[in-house]
Computed example of a mutant assay.
Amino acid sequence: MDTRVQRSSRPTMADVAKAAGVSVMSVSYSFAQPDRVSESTRSKVFAAAEELGYSGPNRAAQSLRSGKFNNIAVVFSEKLTYAFEDAVARRFLSGIADACLDANAGLMMLPNSGRPGDLDRVRDAAVDGYIVWTTAIDDPILDAIAGTGKPACIQGGPVHEGLDLVAMDDIEGAVAIATVGLVGSTRPTVISVPWDRERRSDIRMDVAPEEAVFPVPRHRLTGYVRAVRDAGLEWNAVRVGIAAVNERSEGARLARLLLDVPASRRPDLVLAMTDELALGALDAVRELGCAAPDDVAVVGWDDIEASATAGLTTVRQSLFDQGRNAARVVLGLDERVEPVEWSIRRRTSTR
Rank of each mutant, 00 (worst) to 15 (best):
D164M: 07
M25D: 14
L221N: 11
G181C: 09
T274D: 07
R266M: 05
W235E: 09
A178M: 05
R286D: 13
I131P: 00
G223P: 09
R10K: 14
D118K: 06
D202G: 03
A97H: 05
Q317F: 13
M109Y: 01
V190N: 06
S349E: 09
H219I: 01
V245E: 12
L254D: 03
R324Y: 05
L271M: 15
N112Y: 01
L182M: 14
D139Y: 02
G21L: 14
Y29N: 14
P293G: 05
R239F: 11
L80T: 04
E198K: 07
D283T: 12
T41P: 11
V88D: 04
R324E: 08
L271I: 10
V45E: 03
N70L: 02
L142I: 06
L259F: 03
S192E: 14
V207W: 08
V285L: 04
V213C: 08
R7F: 15
N70S: 04
P194E: 02
P151E: 14
V270T: 07
N70Y: 00
S264C: 00
A20P: 02
I154A: 01
A97P: 01
V75S: 04
V74C: 03
E172R: 12
A61D: 03
A20T: 11
R345F: 10
G53N: 12
G149W: 08
G323F: 02
T148N: 07
V16W: 07
S249M: 15
A291W: 11
E172C: 08
E39Q: 12
P209H: 13
A83C: 09
D302N: 11
V245C: 07
R7H: 13
G156S: 08
G323W: 04
A99P: 00
A272L: 10
